[in-house]
Structure formats: structure tokens, C-alpha cells
């Protein structure tokens, strides 16, 4: 009986804890090195200003980056960044998953895609999640 209870506790903790995962993919023939200017398209449902975190990170790496709610920027850019952020509650709200897509501004086609998922016990601040997915998608060195 004690052993069964111990097994149940381990199973329950396993269900709650989970593991962090990160994935990235690039379209065949994608040439990300040519991208110097970016436009971050604000997600309509985003009330937390995540698009500004993308702009800040891209700017910190020396790119020119702007953001807005429109599908297309007012001035031409090399690439458009779109994203989806997912949040969960565990004592406090935290970002559990962030997806990003880098699109060729000329065609609108996705050329790179990355995802970072971090359950509660491995949670990270949104700026770090943004850095993680951009680093993977743009093939930047760690």
C-alpha cells in the first residue's frame, strides 16, 4: 500500500512538472543571413507587449526592428516576425510556450520557425524566452 502511494505521488509530480523543450526548423534554402531589417507584427490578442521584447532583442543584436499591428510595415523590410505566446497559472502567471515565425517580407512565406516551452518549474522570464526562440530561428551563436 505504501509503495502504491509512493508511485502515485511520483506519477502526480511527473504530471505537474513536465520538461522544457525547444524546437526549430528552417525552410529548405532559407537564407537568413541576408535579413537586416525586421518588422514585428503585434499579435492582436497580446496585451503584454511581447512584440516590444522582440524589437528590443533584435535591436540589441544590431538589426533594425520596428513593430506594429498592421500585417505589413509602412516602410519595406527584409523580414516579418510573427509569434504566439501561451500563458499558464501556477502561483503567478507565466509564459509556458512561445512560438515565432520569421517570414520573407517579399513573399510572406515562413522561412524559419522556433518554439520554446517551459513548464512551471522551469519557467523563464519572457525576455529570455524571446531571446531563446530568436536565437534558434536566426541561427545566432549562443
Amino acid at each position: 500500500m505504501q509503495r502504491l502511494r509512493l508511485w502515485l505521488i511520483v506519477a502526480a509530480l511527473g504530471a505537474l512538472a513536465g520538461c522544457s523543450t525547444q524546437s526549430v526548423s528552417h525552410a529548405p534554402g532559407a537564407e537568413l543571413g541576408t535579413f537586416k531589417t525586421f518588422y514585428v507584427q503585434k499579435l492582436a490578442a497580446d496585451q503584454r507587449g511581447i512584440e516590444q521584447l522582440f524589437v528590443k532583442q533584435l535591436t540589441a543584436w544590431g538589426y533594425t526592428a520596428t513593430s506594429g499591428a498592421a500585417d505589413r510595415p509602412a516602410t519595406p523590410v527584409d523580414a516579418i516576425v510573427t509569434y504566439q505566446d501561451r500563458w499558464a497559472w501556477d502561483i503567478t502567471m507565466y509564459m509556458i510556450r512561445l512560438n515565432v515565425q520569421i517570414r520573407d517580407a517579399q513573399t510572406g512565406a515562413i522561412v524559419a520557425s522556433a518554439e520554446s516551452m517551459r513548464p512551471s518549474l522551469e519557467r523563464r522570464d519572457p525576455p529570455e524566452m524571446v531571446k531563446d526562440v530568436l536565437q534558434a530561428a536566426l541561427k545566432r551563436p549562443q
Partner: peptide, 11 residues
């Protein structure tokens, strides 16, 4: 025990 069993079943 019941709660833990429920969590395990959900898993």
C-alpha cells in the same frame, strides 16, 4: 490517495 490516483489516471 484518491486525489493522487486521479492525477495518475489523468496522466
Amino acid at each position: 490517495s484518491l486525489l493522487l490516483l486521479g492525477c495518475a489516471c489523468a496522466l
